[in-house]
């Protein structure tokens, strides 16, 4: 039983290893891109939408609304990043119902990579929105003594992001594997359904938390009202 798809190696050339994580990530990327291309190549502005166009519009509109609700800003510039986080994680977790598939999000390498992306995206969006000075100044507030704690907070929440997603998905996979060996009928299916639900929730949580972090960086130091209106991150399970 493999704990992580990193251990599944398909091909190796020097230091680069084509393991299961990368392979399944490419699969998910290919599915998402191909599906999007197939649907959006014939988009029309007619009020009578196709089912697939309707599905995509519901997805995109839902993500935009969530971003706008959390950030209280225009969702345009955050949509590709946050939306891709959600779609990638959701699709990765959804495909676990396919036999033989290993979710890339069950690899700590993948979740770490996503968390690093968020870790980098926060200052990038913050500086792009407010400028480097204003953004960096909030690390020394309320006093410069808080600088190390703020830095630790940034790092720890990034680690938490990575570990939370990895733990949930990996644990689901492991539980199903263990149940398959103990009670091969019925219970693994139930747990897999539960895993699907957990996977969707984790995708939502990851994307929302990323948006909350970015929103806190882009709306920082705008006065007491902005501080009061700073969106509260949802409680993670």
């Amino acid at each position: 039983m493999t704990i992580t798809p990193d251990d599944v190696v398909y091909w190796q050339w020097g230091l680069f290893t084509l393991n299961g994580t990368i392979a399944f990530t490419w699969l998910v990327m290919a599915l998402l891109t191909l599906g999007s291309w197939l649907i959006t190549r014939n988009l029309g502005d007619d009020p009578n939408l196709t089912r697939w166009q309707n599905l995509l519009e519901v997805l995109v509109t839902g993500i935009r609304d969530q971003i706008a609700q959390v950030s209280r800003q225009q969702p345009g510039i955050y949509l590709p990043f946050v939306g891709t986080l959600f779609l990638f994680i959701a699709m990765s977790n959804l495909l676990t119902i396919v036999p033989g598939y290993e979710a890339p999000t069950g690899s700590l390498s993948t979740t770490t990579a996503l968390a690093i992306c968020v870790f980098v995206a926060v200052p990038v969006f913050g500086i792009a929105s407010k400028g480097a000075g204003i953004f960096l100044r909030h690390y020394v507030k309320p006093t410069p003594l808080m600088l190390p704690f703020n830095v630790i907070g940034e790092i720890s929440r990034t680690v938490a992001l990575a570990v939370r997603l990895y733990g949930n998905i990996m644990s689901g996979t492991v539980i199903v594997a263990i149940l398959l060996s103990l009670t091969p009928y019925f219970f693994p299916v139930v747990m897999q359904l539960l895993g699907l639900l957990t996977g969707m929730i984790q995708a939502y949580i990851f994307a929302i938390l990323a948006m909350v972090y970015i929103a806190s960086a882009t709306s920082v130091h705008e006065g007491s009202q902005d501080q009061d209106e700073k969106p509260q991150p949802p409680v993670s399970p």
Binding site: F16, T25, S109
Partner: peptide, 25 residues
Amino acid sequence: IDWITVSAQVVNFLILVWLLKRFLY
């Protein structure tokens, strides 16, 4: 943590962001 995989996933993710922005959003 396989840092090579991590870097590859970062690149993959950024590519996916671009792809979805181009073909979806």
